[in-house]
Write a protein that binds this DNA or RNA. Structure first.
Lengths: 331, 331
DNA sequence: GTGAAAGCGCTAACAG
DNA sequence: CTGTTAGCGCTTTCAC
């Protein structure tokens, strides 16, 4: 059986209060008794019972990080940045993964709330008034990353602007026909419109904003799950050389692979640009032109804001992180 | 302020015991009062206080999953498999990441122990008697995955056998000179020998076992951090065509990229084989020959064993999962 | 500087 | 079927 402060009190012949003072660096105790108790704690391999402590103090010193996916380094880098800072403030982080399942996201949030985490950082996959109300009902400070929820503090890049500028970049590279590839968009409106596609929508909007302002440009949007055949057909049908602007590097990789199989060369036969600058791009030839952010910075900003919320301070709702267009060999 | 069972008791004009019976499906309560209380709980947005519950029951219904890294899909797939099964048994999983830092691993383990998780699944990066003693001192059921710790239940593929058979596979593809690439090995003995390289060691052993039995074979082992230049030099110096067997796909990717830059073609000028079958290989040309496991199966096995340990049952210490050699275009 | 006692919210054993 | 009571281990307040 694990040893408790009660046991230590008996062993050291002091009261539980004194043991607490000794072990938690609280004032009002003599140096000698403190050291005596600390020594006993070490000897008996005392381990604080954080559950009891949490109950008593009303703080769990834990924050939940709710991700929808761990597949790409993006999130792992972000959670590492969060971990580091959280730990330096005495907080432990529980990482939980929703797997892009709305029901699972809900369960995880309620579970973390029941475990009384002191705060939450989440990449939401749900949207809508009901969901926002539900989150507020948890009565826990929350910061979102990526997808946004109206009224809840949020950290991300300015997706709209990034997509706008990327489209401009593609255009200035000489392309007069640009196709935006955004398969997640097909889910728009599914799940009773509950599916949160904010980031993707912003990217589409940014793209549209640019192409519509430049009337000489021709544009398309591909939202099919299996977009490669359509892309190939499109290339073969049109005489102008087109560029494919993918809302994520993953789709750019997919296109690259399929184009290669169909004997279409990049950038000779078509242009290609991605988004996110995934680390695996380093192993891909040709180097894909893409948009990059310091994802660590996103994580750091998110945890800093959360800590301020926990401390009861006011924070900005919208927090943008800088981004860069990374030139490659595919335009 | 959140509502408690005490409040509900007052509201429904019953005792706290009855509220508990109603909310937790315990017997000894009439259908009508149960429903009345459940209704009130819903109305008042009651949320169970899992911290208090844990303290009282002596069980947190949480298990810790301690990973050293989230970078590859390998671990994310595994933790998803674990999550799913754990949840179906009422357990929540806390994922924590050590970032291959021995001190961080220690802290995380102690923290999780202090939070009284009911069990742990870990990919250890530390080894040695002291560490094993420390783990036992936590008095929590533990299952390891990947690296092994003597006496602690463990799930993985038979790395030795997989490496042995892979080497044989390379040999049978016609290579008489095989170089094993295993950069983590350079850390062997560092950190006062605390660094756990069990899996990697088993792979090296399997490789050596095969090449030493076949005396006509020439072999090398590369353990440098920056192994590509040596690999290139080796290729240029020797007349026989060599194959590089990498202890992880990551190194194979690295070699492939460097070889390409140096004008060395795979498989024309050299053979290449990886290990792990990372998902990103799908985007790489040529397709890298590698070894694959059902990582979900590893996760499932690990959580099943852990649940049995938690239930107080006896389990096997060594648990192997099947693997396959995935033919590619690089040999 | 130290001790005693009440309490965090829930559970479980026992009475009725 | 329902209520009462005594904890779980730690923190905190107040008294000495």
């Amino acid at each position: 059986m694990a040893i408790t402060t009660k046991d230590l009190a008996k062993i050291c012949d002091v009261s539980r209060g004194t043991v607490d003072r000794a072990l938690n660096g609280r004032p009002g105790i003599s140096k000698t008794t403190r050291e005596r108790i600390q020594k006993a704690a070490r000897e008996y391999n005392y381990r604080p019972h954080l559950i009891a402590s949490s109950l008593s103090r009303g703080k769990s010193m834990a924050i939940g990080v709710v991700l929808f996916d761990l597949k790409n380094r993006f999130f792992s880098q972000m959670s590492n940045a969060i971990n580091l800072i959280a730990r330096s403030h005495g907080y432990f982080t529980y990482i939980a993964v929703t797997e892009k399942d709305i029901e699972s996201e809900k369960q995880i949030l309620h579970n973390l709330a029941s475990r009384r985490v002191d705060g939450l950082i989440m990449l939401p996959i749900t949207q809508g008034e009901d969901f926002i109300r539900e989150l507020k009902g948890l009565e826990i400070p929350i910061v979102t990353v990526g997808n946004q929820l109206s009224g809840i503090p949020h950290v991300s890049i300015d997706e709209f602007k990034a997509a706008y500028e990327s489209t401009q970049y593609i255009n200035e590279a000489g392309y007069k026909r640009i196709c935006f590839v955004c398969p997640p968009f097909r889910k728009k409106g599914s799940q009773n419109g509950l599916f949160n596609l904010y980031s993707q929508e912003q990217r589409v909007e940014g793209f549209l904003h640019y192409v519509k302002k430049n009337l000489k440009l021709k544009y398309d949007i591909l939202t099919e799950k299996d977009f490669s055949p359509s892309a190939v057909t499109m290339l073969r049908k049109e005489k102008e050389k087109a560029a494919f602007f993918c809302s994520s590097d993953i789709y750019a990789l997919e296109l690259l692979r399929n184009f290669r199989e169909m004997g279409i060369s990049i950038p000779q036969d078509a242009g290609l640009m991605g988004f996110d600058n995934l680390d695996i791009l380093a192993y891909i030839t040709p180097r894909i032109t893409t948009v990059s952010t310091s994802i660590e910075e996103v994580g750091e900003k998110a945890i800093h804001i959360l800590l301020r919320l926990i401390a009861g301070e006011k924070v900005e709702t919208t927090n943008y992180i800088p981004y860069d267009i990374c030139p490659g060999e595919t335009l």
